[in-house]
Simulated scan of single mutants.
Amino acid sequence: MPKALFLDRDGVVNVEKHYLHRIEDCEFVAGLFDLCRAASQAGYRLIIVTNQSGIARGYFNEAQFLSLMDWVRLQFSRQNAPLLDVFYCPHHPTQGVGQYKTKCLCRKPHPQMLFDAARKHDLDLQESIIVGDKLSDIQAGRAAHVKKTVLVGTGHHVNEADKQAADLFADSLFELKNQLFPVVDEACA
């Protein structure tokens, strides 16, 4: 069974911006594509799992989100790091509007997006990794029994308790790539 590198979107894939939904506002986090290429070469499938409460709050709609994600997929592909899929939660339990105001099982820290990805793509969660910038990402990974939960300091403020909750912490995606997928010096091998 294949394994996955699950990536949170805001703060991990793209620079954290206030409810990002426009292509012209998207800026990728430094080191993202190096990390993703290394993960792909190591046999991981790349999947984004993201809470998108901006949809729930009415700041943008699902069509706008999906249009941006089509463009993001194209950028990953151009970088030789193709995304297998994108899973998102459009709900919020208290700030949502209409059908989007609901307590759901897909919003992280719940693990439903990871379970859905595993079922759809026949993934081995116990060999997979989740990378996030918030404790809710780590909690979702733990609830899904992924092999490794990784917290990065590329988005939201990370405190010591959050760092301790994760299996691994990295300040940057460059550092994370070197921790997860170190380059072996062939002369020493």
Results as ranks from 00 to 15, higher is better:
D85P: 10
P90V: 04
K163W: 07
K148I: 11
R119Q: 08
L173A: 02
R107P: 05
C89S: 08
K148L: 13
D185I: 07
R119V: 14
L84S: 13
I48D: 03
S128V: 13
G98R: 13
R22A: 11
Y88S: 06
R22V: 04
A189L: 09
F6A: 12
H110Q: 14
N14I: 04
L20D: 14
G31P: 07
L20K: 03
V86G: 12
L5K: 15
R119S: 09
Q52A: 09
K103R: 11
H18P: 10
V158F: 00
S53Q: 09
D171I: 05
C36W: 06
F28W: 11
K147H: 15
L83V: 10
T149G: 13
S136I: 01
E24W: 09
K148P: 14
V15W: 02
N14K: 09
G54L: 13
F60I: 03
A42T: 07
L114R: 10
P111T: 04
F87H: 12
L68S: 06
K3M: 04
G153E: 00
T94W: 13
G31L: 03
R45D: 07
Q41K: 08
S172P: 06
F65T: 15
N80A: 09
Y100M: 02
Q164C: 12
K120V: 13
D124M: 07
H110E: 06
G96W: 08
G153L: 00
D85E: 06
Q164E: 14
V15H: 02
G155A: 01
G98C: 07
N61D: 12
D85W: 03
E127T: 05
I129C: 05
T149P: 09
V131W: 05
E24C: 07
G155S: 00
R9L: 01
H121P: 01
G54Q: 14
A56G: 01
D70H: 05
Q179W: 11
Q99Y: 10
V184F: 15
V29T: 10
D122H: 09
A161Y: 03
P82W: 11
T50I: 03
L114D: 03
A118Y: 10
P2S: 12
V152D: 07
V150L: 06
T94K: 10
L83Y: 02
L135K: 14
F181N: 00
H91Y: 11
E160C: 06
L7E: 02
M1I: 04
F60R: 10
I48W: 04
L20P: 00
Q126W: 09
K120G: 08
E16H: 01
A187V: 12
C188W: 15
Q52K: 07
E16F: 00
C36S: 11
D167E: 10
A56E: 01
L7R: 09
A30N: 05
G141E: 01
D122Q: 07
D8R: 04
L32A: 03
C104V: 02
G54T: 08
A38G: 05
V184E: 15
P82M: 06
R142E: 05
D124S: 04
F6H: 09
A170S: 13
G141P: 05
G43R: 13
A81K: 00
